[in-house]
Each structure stands twice: as C-alpha cells, then as structure tokens.
Design a protein around this nucleic acid. Structure first.
Lengths: 331, 331
DNA sequence: TATGTCTGGGTAAACGTTTTCGCAGATGTG
DNA sequence: CACATCTGCGAAAACGTTTACCCAGACATA
C-alpha cells in the first residue's frame, strides 16, 4: 500500500540508489531532468520515507529519550517543554517516560529506550541505588543528566542547578528578615538536590551564628501530600518556629494551606518560602516567595548539549545554572 | 560492538532463525539444551535486540504518538500520565509533541510520526482548519481523538467529555445559587470544547428563563494570561455581572486573582466557577468550585482504546466521559 | 588514435531481524 | 522391511533504506 523507494525507482526508470540520492540531496551530479522527475513522482504518490529502514543503516534514529520522575509534578512539564522545543528545532523527537522515582521502572525504561535505539537519553535520575548505577554503566547510549547528579561513567554531560546557593540565598533572606527558627520540610534525602539544599540551609544558619536544630528538619517526598503531612508533623512536634523553608513549591503551597486552615496567618505568624517557582506559586494567596529554577531552560539546554555531543561532536560538559530568589508575599 | 543475533548464532553453532525463535519463544519444538545454551549466551553477552530491525519486518513499532497543544497547560500532564501508564503496561512507548494549537506544527508532527512508523496516534486536535483535516485524511495511521472532536475519516475512536452537560450543570448551579448575571470568559471558539460549553451555558440560562446577554461573553485563549486580560475586559466593559464562568481553571484562577487585586471579594462580591479541576484549583484561596474533567482517565482510555483496535482488533468506538461539579468555596 | 576526464548514473552489499518452508535423521507402525 | 510421522533445526527471502565503488559513453586532448 505504502509506496517505497523501489516503487519510485521503477516508475522513474532509475535505480533505487539514484532515488535515494535525490531524496537526500546527496549527489549533485544527477541531472536536473532525472531529479525533477523523481521528485515529482515522489510527491504525486505521497511518498513517506521509512525511517526505521534508514535508521537501520545509518545507525541514527533522531530520537531521544526523556526519563523523568513524574510529568504530573509541575516542575517537569516546563522542563519537558524546553526539551521538546529544542529537540523539534533540531529534527529530533522525544520519547518520554515516568519513573515515579522507582529504580526498577527506571532501568526497565532505560532498557526499552536502548532497544528502540534512541540516540541519547536525558535522565533525571531516581532513587540512587547501587544496582541502578550499575545498569547505567552498562548502557552504551550517550547520557545527559539533568537536575540530579550521580556518578556514572559514560555521562556526556550534565545540566544542574546550584542547589546549594539557591537554598543558601533563600535561608539567608529569611534570616535577614529576622526569622530565627527556620524549619525545613525537605524532599527525600536520597536525591542530590535535597542533600545540596540541606547543605545550603545549614551553611546559611551557621554563617549567621544560628545553631542548627535537627528537630526542625522533616524529611519526606517532593509531593503535595507531604506539604500537608510535613506541616502537621511540624505543628504537632511542639517545637517553636517562625518560618518554613520548603523543599519545593508543591510542599510550600500545601504548607500555607495547612497553616491557614489552623488559623495561622502567612506571613504574619509564620513565613513560608518555597523552591522551584512553578507557575502556580504566583497564583496562590499569598503569592509564594520562592527560589526560581529555570526548568524550561534546563530541558532546553540538556537537549542542546546532547545534540552538540551527538551531531557536532563537541565535548560533553557540565552546565550549572543559577537560581534566583523571587520575592513575593509569603515572607 | 553491540552483539547481534548473528553473533549469538555463531557462538552457539545454530542458525539465526533458531536464535530468533528461542528469543521470542516462538517454537516449542526446539530442544531444551539448545534453548538454554542460546539463552545463556545471550545473557552473558548482554544482548539487546534491535527493535528497528524487528519492526522493519513485523511492521509494528510498539510506539504511539501523543499530540497535544501544550504539556505546560496543567490539564495535559495528567492526561499524558494516564496515557503513558497504560501504554507502558501494554509494552508501548510514547512520543509526545506540543503543537501550541498551531495547524502547521501539528501537521508537521503528524508527518514525522508517520515516518517514524508509529502504530497509532492520539490527538488533541488544534485549530480546526480545512487543510488540517485534509492532511489528517491522508494519514494512514490509526487515530484516536481525545478531548476535541472533528470529522475525519480514518478515526479509530474518540475519547470525549460531555462538555455540554458539564457547562450546563455548572451554570445551573450558579443560577440555583441566585446568580443571575453570569459572565462567561471562554477559550477559543474554534475548538469544539469551547463551542459545546458555550452551548451548555446558553441552554442553562434559557431553561431558567434568563435572557442571554452577549456582552457578558468574552472569547480568548485557554491560558493564564487570558484570565487576567479577560477579567479586565469584563470589568472595563461596565456591564453588570455577579458571577463568572470560566473556560478553564487557568482562566478562573487568574480571574480570582485579578478580582482580588481590585479589592473585589470572591465569592461574596463575585462568584467564580472554573472548568477542568486541575490540582491547583484546590490550592488557591478560595478553593475553586469547578467542573471536574477526568484528565488522567481520558489519556488512559485513549491508549486502551487504541491498543484494543491495534492488537485485539476490536471495533473503534466513542467513549464519552462524564464530568462532575466539584463544589468548593468560590461560589 | 590512444588516452584521459567528465557526466550521469547503476550494482550490490549491508543494516539486524522474522518467518515460511523444507529437510535429514530418528522413531514408530504394520 | 517399507513407509509414515516426529523432532529439531537451517536456508534464504524479505522488510526499505544507504553508500562505497564501479562503469559506460561522450567529449577533449596530445
């Protein structure tokens, strides 16, 4: 049913080689007459090249895998969009996968992507288990890490954000605003992002001579529900606090909500500071003061980096993007 | 470098046919000895099948295309997630594309997907232009429409939501709550969703004997910015109103925000009712009363439907999902 | 005339699988 | 013993491209 290069060749009385060359603009020595004839036939018959056949010989699929924890977490659509925009611009398509931070799902996806012969993979690595890194090492596909850092061999590049300074700046801002008892409701400390932010938090306190109180630190997940649960844990713990620094905006938004429900005013009673600057943070009441992460840019740069390595054989590198504090009304 | 079926055959002293059969569990007549030997060699050498080569002969890629307007619109991550979950469960992967409701981008993507030989496409159709439908008709790939309806020939199924009754129920609720002058800030009337919702809006008013005032209807985009702009247009128009029904939650949230900034209280002065029930609608102040659309389910069902047609050659059909009104505090 | 140089293509292998037959030897059957 | 039936596997084509070489004729050159 579908027309192939062979059919065109037959109709045009030339060889498939000639057709291929013409269709790919590969051989300028072919006469204008032949060229136009072939092109016309192709168009008339609505020829659609079979990219699988091509990929089989060129060993290039123009496809890249995007592996992330959960597209439903509002940080990632932005990232995915940035990635897709750049990919599309360069003639690539994206296969996307949700790992739910599950190591098994992740490695299953990575294997599937390998089988599909994607040219490269962009990965927000999930839970950092040993077996996982092991399987990553086996992977022969160029890998660009995004958001979360790990130690793997065949990494072609990384796009990271300076989580330490992001958190430092945030907590420092709280301190400058005279908050002294700053709680921290964090995401899972198995992720490098959470660890680095914790580092920024503690360093900022130290630098201001504030003693770190580990009873103020609550570890959970980067999810909305944890914003509620973490805040309740904090409230029930009876330890005094005047501000909450949150692992991400999803947590922060729900912390605010939980506080409001208990009749606690934000920011007059308690200040809340978030992380990510998802679009939603500007739409709540009070608008959330938060650390802006350039999610779109991260995705965009990751794909750019990957393609530079793939097609323009540039050196892999690490890009470290800056955060900035977005001051609104929750502090 | 990468090991192929040929290498395995050589090492095991069998033919590639045998290896293929064993790896695919296709021929029980092969002796246990040979079977185990081949399997062992494959495992030892970390064999990864080349799915492109396979697809070339089987004419099956186990890939489906997901074409939607913008993953950044919070309605779509849910949908995409539903689609991906089901796809993954059935051994499919998803290529995703953002069209920005741009007809050219859409048809360019559709062509790319065709070249990649995806087995099927799930499409939220963008602006409904003639040329577009034309090119859809040419497409030989099974198509499942989601969210927005159009008239195309080779449709294998549709997953729609009853927009009419969703809007009807919403507006009727407003009327029952004694609101009489209900403004409507809608998305683009080039989409079937907007048209149907408008139908529900007018019908509900009619049924209550309320005259329809077209000065209360403002058409724009399904975007946050339009929530701000539309509300301002409404306020500046000096026409009286006591409630706003919004084309989606993104609009509603920003309508509330705009109203609040002007010192207008929601819902005491003006009621606001949204559409979609994106997660964010529960997190703002006041929590948004809105029409719930089962986004996750839509994605899930669309993939299910597609795969049923593809693999279980069932009949294509139209699934019409129900909405339900989620009553919170903005009315 | 013999040689060289363009011009305009064609030949055929290769990419890594799957799949349709078919075949040789072993075993059973009458 | 002659024949049929199983058992276990292999040969080779096919999927739709790309690409490294090669080649035949036309024309120019010495």
């Amino acid at each position: 049913m579908k027309i192939t290069i062979k059919d065109i060749a037959k109709k045009a009385n030339v060889s498939t080689a000639t057709v291929s060359k013409i269709l790919n603009n590969k051989d300028e020595r072919i006469s204008k007459k032949t060229r136009e004839r072939v092109l016309l036939i192709a168009k008339e018959n609505n020829y659609i090249p079979n990219l699988m056949a091509r990929s089989l010989v060129t060993r290039k699929t123009n496809t890249i895998g995007l592996v992330l924890p959960d597209i439903t977490n509002p940080f990632f659509p932005e990232l995915a969009r940035g990635a897709e925009d750049k990919a599309n611009k360069e003639g690539y398509m994206i296969m996307y996968c949700n790992t739910d931070d599950d190591a098994e799902k992740e490695s299953s996806y990575l294997e599937m992507l390998a089988q599909k012969m994607v040219d490269g993979i962009i990965l927000t690595q999930s839970a950092n288990k040993e077996g996982n890194v092991e399987s990553l090492n086996k992977l022969k596909i160029p890998l660009v890490l995004i958001d979360r850092d790990i130690n793997v061999k065949n990494i072609k590049g990384k796009v990271l954000v300076d989580n330490f300074s992001g958190a430092y700046e945030a907590v420092d801002y709280l301190i400058k605003k005279e908050y002294k008892k700053i709680a921290y409701i964090t995401g899972p400390l198995s992720t490098t992002t959470a660890i680095e932010r914790l580092g920024g938090y503690t360093k900022a306190l130290e630098d201001s001579g504030i003693l770190i109180n580990f009873e103020l630190i609550f570890e959970g997940e980067y999810k909305a529900q944890w914003g509620i649960d973490g805040t309740n844990e904090l409230l029930n713990s009876k330890v005094e606090f005047d501000a909450i620094f949150c692992g991400n905006d999803l947590i922060a938004v729900n912390a605010i909500r939980t506080l409001k429900e208990k009749g606690i005013h934000v920011p007059n009673d308690i200040a809340v500071l978030g992380y990510d600057n998802i679009f939603l943070s500007d739409m709540i009441d009070p608008p959330l003061t938060t650390v802006n992460q350039p999610a779109y840019k991260m995705g965009y740069e990751a794909v750019k980096l990957l393609i530079d390595v793939l097609d323009n054989n540039k050196e892999g590198k690490t890009i470290k993007l800056k955060t900035n504090l977005v001051i609104r009304k929750s502090v």
